[in-house]
């Protein structure tokens, strides 16, 4: 589904990603872990199409398309979703109007008819129940004055509404207490199926207690330096990132 080959990316001429290789197949959950500054969020941003980054080398194929050639909205249309580390507050735009516009623009991209008011409401109610989000939150301006937990729950709700093939969770656990992490993770787990995949980007292992990965990759200094089964996350948690840093010191 997603095939990243030798991906290099810069921001303001500073090299951040220095040759990433990663294959994700439908039904899989991958976790990318790594110390601060290793390039985790950059990878998430480059995949979603944030314009601050310049891809200098490599390819990314997503669902048979050259991902890097698509605009952010086209990527969403193809089924890519990024749950933001810092969801943006947008005054004056209700979450409901926003998500309705998003759902129908994505449907348009896929050549489907827009949902009418009744069908949209039905879908919304179903997904609200699934991710445990309250109506009162959705009638407010998008993320405006939301708590950290509410913002992240709203991200998962959007994911539920857009039903992506690949969801990238960028540090979704940051700033959340353990109860909020559990609620958000439960939402993500309910959305998992054999046809879609999840890429969890995180600094800590704790989120992976709830969203259990099939593969764990360690990102360090712009490269994936180690990959393994979920047990690798426990090892990292136990030993800290220093053991990675020491092991790969020479290359750094």
């Amino acid at each position: 589904m997603l095939s990243i080959k030798n991906l290099h990316a810069n921001i303001d001429d500073k090299k951040i990603l220095k040759g990433i290789n990663l294959e994700i197949k439908p039904g899989e959950v991958h976790a990318i872990m790594g110390p601060n500054g290793s390039g985790k969020s950059t990878l998430a941003s480059v995949l979603a199409g944030r314009e601050d980054y310049e891809v200098t080398e490599g390819t990314v194929e997503f669902a048979g398309k050259d991902l890097l050639d698509l605009s952010p909205e086209e990527r969403a249309g193809e089924g890519l979703f990024l749950a933001f580390q810092y969801p943006v507050e947008i005054p004056g735009l209700s979450t409901t109007n926003f998500i309705k516009t998003a759902v129908n623009e994505v449907r348009k991209y896929r050549g489907e008819e827009p949902l009418d008011a009744v069908a949209f409401l039905k879908l919304m109610k179903e997904k609200m129940a699934m991710v445990n989000i309250d109506q009162s939150l959705l009638s407010r301006s998008l993320n405006e004055g939301f708590s950290g937990g509410e913002k992240k729950r709203n991200e998962v709700f959007q994911m539920a509404m857009l039903q992506p093939k690949l969801a990238i969770l960028d540090e979704t656990d940051s700033g959340l207490d353990i109860d909020a992490i559990r609620i958000v993770a439960n939402g993500v787990n309910k959305l998992r199926s054999k046809d879609n995949a999840v890429l969890v980007v995180t600094h800590y292992q704790r989120l992976l207690d709830y969203i259990v990965p099939d593969f764990v990759h360690v990102l360090y200094n712009g490269r994936i330096v180690k990959s393994g089964p979920k047990e690798l996350a426990f090892e990292l948690e136990e030993k800290g990132y220093d053991f990675i840093k020491n092991e790969f010191k020479v290359e750094a």
């Binding site: 952010p72 909205e73 969403a76 933001f84 926003f98 516009t101």
Partner: peptide
């Protein structure tokens, strides 16, 4: 803000209007 809306599939011109 513009990138946030676009990442949800909303075209750039619609995102600006919103």
């Amino acid at each position: 803000s513009l990138f946030y809306l676009r990442s949800r599939g909303i075209s750039e011109s619609t995102a600006r209007s919103l």
